[in-house]
């Protein structure tokens, strides 16, 4: 029983991070039809920026803010300079481009920050909380993770639902040409979308790093889990991404707890293939006809 609860709690924390990463992928996919595989190394780079500041003696929170801010800039610059030229090209060009970016950022981080594991501080305690005499596997840091992701979700929801710029962003994503005819600067909205996505991606990078080890490749598997989570949610719906992330986090936590941690990636692959075969539009799709 205790193991069950602990596995579920661990899964929820992890799921929150996957949800954030999936959300970052979805924000970009629904406006540009590009899955940004480079999101993982982008988040890694911003986490290293945070670590550099923290190691230089600044507080955790300064590093945290700097990482999010540099994510914003990085996302905008990458969209503007590198992605814009392939936005109307065959989709395979964009895929290869994001992978090229993946390799580049990876190597760049290894050259600048070194290619070894470094420990990243946690903002809060890493010891399990005591509930009714037993220690459960939910830490203060874990609670912070869930709260941070939830906050970002709510902020994004408010942005998209209730602000003019959010409305313009959605219009550009759904129908760029009509949006242009209604005075929306679609290019600017895409840049903004990439920037926001990169902030959310950076957040998930920071949350994974907290209290653990970072390394130029530490986000590599997260991009896969984030992708699977996003596909679970239909790859286009922010809410779907969140639900998909939590579902995946729980499932993988159970695989890891009961079958062995080596099989986590294999389980993710199986889940992905099952969804793509049975419900290609995601778990919540109404119509199943969809090209994947």
């Amino acid at each position: 029983m205790q193991q069950l609860v602990n596995t579920a709690l661990g899964g929820l924390t992890l799921g929150a991070v996957y949800a954030a990463f999936a959300l970052a992928l979805v924000l970009i996919f629904r406006s540009t039809r590009i899955v940004n595989f480079a999101q993982a190394p982008m988040a890694m780079v911003t986490t290293f920026i945070a670590l550099t500041l923290i190691d230089a003696g600044y507080s955790y929170w300064i590093g945290f803010a700097a990482a999010l801010l540099s994510g914003l800039v990085l996302g905008a610059v990458i969209e503007r300079v590198i992605i814009r030229p392939v936005e109307d090209k065959p989709e395979i060009n964009a895929v290869i481009l994001t992978l090229g970016l993946f390799i580049t950022l990876h190597a760049l981080a290894a050259v600048i920050f070194g290619n070894r594991f470094r420990s990243f501080p946690a903002p809060f305690g890493l010891r399990g909380l005591e509930v009714g005499g037993t220690t459960i596997r939910l830490t203060t840091s874990g609670i912070f993770t869930i709260a941070a992701v939830a906050t970002v979700m709510v902020l994004l929801l408010l942005l998209f639902r209730y602000t003019d710029v959010g409305l313009r962003m959605r219009a550009s994503a759904y129908n760029p040409e009509v949006a242009r005819l209604l005075g929306v600067r679609v290019g600017r909205m895409l840049t903004l979308g990439w920037a926001l996505a990169a902030v959310v991606g950076s957040l998930s990078g920071l949350l994974i790093a907290s209290g653990g080890l970072v390394h130029p490749g530490y986000m590599d598997s997260i991009v896969v889990y984030g992708f699977v989570a996003a596909v679970l949610g239909g790859l286009e719906s922010p809410v779907g991404a969140v639900v998909g992330g939590l579902t995946l986090g729980l499932s993988l936590s159970f695989v890891s707890g009961y079958l062995g941690s080596e099989l986590v990636a294999l389980a993710a692959l199986l889940i992905l293939m099952l969804v793509l075969t049975l419900k290609p539009g995601g778990l919540f799709a109404v119509a199943s006809a969809r090209r994947v």
């Binding site: 996919f29 590009i34 899955v35 989709e91 964009a94 895929v95 699977v228 692959l269 994947v292």
Partner: peptide
């Protein structure tokens, strides 16, 4: 599978 879906699945 096509494009990004195929890329993601093979990456997995």
């Amino acid at each position: 599978l096509h494009g990004p879906y195929l890329a993601g699945a093979t990456l997995a």
